[in-house]
Design a protein around this nucleic acid. Structure first.
Lengths: 235, 235
DNA sequence: AAGTGGTCTAGACCACACT
DNA sequence: GTGTGGTCTAGACCACTTG
């Protein structure tokens, strides 16, 4: 993993301002000599820095350090579940429902299974620093996630899947919308009548391409912030 | 651009179900022979398909078609400004403000310029299919975007920058939150007192690393939907 | 053990930006 | 023209999954 060493080293050097903002970096050949690697390895490292939004590269011109200081929040591309986004003890979980049911048409479609197949249907309330902040509705195919226990549901299902089942989470499609709470949500989140929520729909896949989770998380606005970097994919 | 040909071809074949969902694709060597390219070119094409969320690849196992049908909306990674997200005639723009001002501390920080530097300060109301839907506050450094005209502001500043100035938009950092409208926004968007908005903050950069835009767009929830794919970057 | 994708090399050629 | 990054090759070796 040479390119990761190059990537981490350059990133650190930039953050330590060895290379200042808007400064041009050494070209590919020089960096390849410096690190004793091929130019392709340099390119791979630089591509990651571009993806991070830390540098730009332009053919015929060079590589330049971007103004990375304006990225005020660490990137939110979590893929780790709600639980791991907060530090130990900051988040408490109240399990409102934990049942095995048959998937209806809509959920079966999201999970790429047959209607009528068994699924876990889980509803959880996340309490962050004492404030009820998120209601999560989670649906998972029973056959993919064997032997799910209350103790997993109470903390992080992601951790169970990754650490215990040793499955790899590959990717997720997320959708963000704004919604009004229903009566149940109003009660659980202690909301006033004019309140609103930010809804994150997520369909998450394992690296064997199976969909293992469809979840709807509704966040109170005080707690919610989603940040991402969009990079233009020109030719 | 051989890898793009491979990418487009494979994508089309998958969508035409030459390769079915969950089916294994030919391995790298075979595809390299088929397309008469090197394996690295195949890998680059496949990497893009992975990024699109269309396939998964696993070392030691193979490449598999994902359930791409569940991606119900075309990906929202626009980088094209509000105007180009809707078809011709669907969106009307009312320019509420179009001035040159001096940047205050906050805006200067976002644009990576000095407080006091000249900027365009633009406020626009976007009316989609007859419904006032978005208020956009846009700030741009004067020196980067010379000679901005009312005609550009009324349609798409992005088009002016890309087509006329021939500058390339490289990337953007976006942040999504939920907010309450102020009185001005309530009036312009015809909102009731208990309403809410989805706020998208965007800091956009050119490929020379200069920040050319800081914008705050506040969307009515009926119109707003943001979708993206998150891919795990392990190793 | 056989087959897969991931990384890496040392070059080559090309497209593009500057002057 | 010079220098830059982007693409590409033909191989090599390695890490990993599955039988």
């Amino acid at each position: 993993m040479k390119y990761l060493v190059v990537y981490e080293t350059l990133k650190e050097e930039i953050f330590n301002e060895k290379y200042a903002i808007n400064e041009q970096l050494p070209n590919g050949r020089e960096l390849a000599e410096l690190f004793h690697v091929s130019m392709l390895t340099i390119k791979k490292a630089m591509d990651r820095l571009v993806l991070d939004g830390i540098i730009v590269r332009r053919r015929g011109d060079g590589s330049y350090v971007k103004d990375w200081k304006k990225m005020d929040v660490a990137q939110h591309n979590h893929l780790s579940g709600t639980f791991n986004q907060f530090s130990e003890g900051e988040v408490k979980t109240k399990v409102l429902k934990f049942e095995v049911e048959r998937a209806d048409e809509k959920i079966a479609a999201k999970l790429s299974i047959q209607a009528g197949d068994f699924i876990y249907a889980i509803t959880r309330l996340r309490i962050i620093r004492g404030i009820p902040s998120i209601i999560e509705y989670t649906f998972m195919p029973l056959d993919l996630i064997p032997n799910l226990q209350m103790s997993h549901v109470e903390t992080s299902i992601y951790n169970y899947i990754q650490r215990d089942l040793r499955l790899m989470v590959h990717s997720a499609v997320v959708k963000i919308t704004g919604v009004r709470p229903d009566d149940f949500e109003k009660k659980e989140l202690h909301l006033k009548s004019n309140s609103f929520l930010l809804q994150v729909d997520q369909v998450a896949s394992l690296d064997n391409s199976r969909v293992f989770e469809f979840s709807i998380a509704k966040h109170i606005p005080e707690e919610f912030e989603f940040e991402t970097v969009i990079v233009s994919n020109k030719k």
